[in-house]
Amino acid sequence: MENKKELIIKAFEQLDADMLDILLNDDQPYQDVSKELFVSELKRYFSEIKTSNYSKLDYKAYKGVCQNCSKGKTGYSFVNSEGHSFMSMVFEESKNDYLDIYNCGSFCTEEKEIEEEMTGIFFYKDDEVTYIPTAKNILEVKRCAAAFAELNRQIKEEGILSKNFYKQWIDKYGDLDDISEAFSGESYRYKSEIKKPLSTLKYYTQIVERESLAKKYWLEFMSIPVADLPSLQDWLVRCDKEFEFLRFGFAESANYAAGFFCDRNLKIDLREFYYYHNISVILNKYFDWIPDSDSVGDEENIEDDYEFPF
């Protein structure tokens, strides 16, 4: 008959978070968070793995040891027949149970080579059972709530977000999207949701500032009398360099009739990107005529008998 520790390992192999909910101790933290939150995150992660069709689900536990963060402590990496590990974990144990279980990013297996390591599970600083908010944390929680309230009120009243709103909103709350926290190990859950609209609208705040330059290039394009390679290539090269990656498209989910495009469920005024969007359409249409950066000026890469892309 399998003992409790063996059943826990088997539940991980089978991506069975419901069984782990039964087996793990209610009053014991795992990876510095409550058992309830630990299991909840495993349920989300296991469901993501099962529905992704990215990797075979024939995972097996392979013993190994941490090489850095908890150096010398042992555990298991859960690896399938393709060499994909969904997570490597340290298992601190007593005779009959596990005292702690936590994700390990510097794990070395003894019997199995890992071809690819998936992300595993992650928790925020304010998820930890020992977390005590500072005055700074309390103030940030209030500012996050205020930022959401202003954004949701604008969405409710106007529906479509214009630069007049989100430029001021970013000026007021943009510091809440602090990427330095990702390197300090002190990321907070209360900030995680507001970071999504902040990062999105920060990007479009920068892009909308280039609308006047896009208009300049668009007027130049409209003055070119013939749309053939000799006439367009200089413009294409300069424009592609100025608007890097724009040839791959912009605002694919645009509703032209209503005048908006969507990004992360935010409706953004498309009319304010009229020229920028047109430049994207032109660059994409003549995509095949834009030389690679290492071939610009190399006349051998431009054939005389070129083909039109339409």
Rank of each mutant, 00 (worst) to 15 (best):
D228Q: 00
G72S: 02
D288R: 15
D32E: 15
A147N: 04
K196V: 14
E36K: 07
P225N: 09
E82V: 13
M89H: 00
G72Q: 07
F183L: 15
R210V: 02
D177M: 09
N68A: 14
F221S: 08
R143V: 12
I22Q: 11
E193S: 09
A227V: 03
E220P: 00
A257G: 04
Y76H: 15
E2Q: 09
G75Q: 02
E36F: 11
S88L: 05
H84R: 03
K267D: 03
A257L: 14
W235Q: 11
K56R: 10
Y166W: 12
F91R: 06
I22R: 13
T109H: 05
I179C: 02
P230R: 03
E158A: 08
D171M: 10
K172V: 12
Y188T: 03
S180Y: 15
S231H: 12
I170A: 07
E115L: 06
K63Y: 04
K163I: 01
D240Y: 07
K43A: 01
K216D: 07
F261V: 05
Y102L: 09
T74N: 08
I179A: 08
E220D: 09
L99M: 07
D305M: 11
F183V: 14
D26G: 02
Y45K: 01
S231K: 10
K136N: 06
A61D: 00
R44W: 06
E242P: 04
N278A: 07
D304S: 00
E116F: 15
V237T: 15
E242S: 01
S280G: 12
Y166I: 13
Y131D: 05
F245Y: 09
E181P: 00
K63N: 02
L139D: 14
F123S: 07
K4P: 01
E140Q: 14
V79I: 15
E115Y: 04
L161D: 02
D294M: 04
D228E: 08
A257D: 09
K267P: 00
P225I: 10
F287R: 15
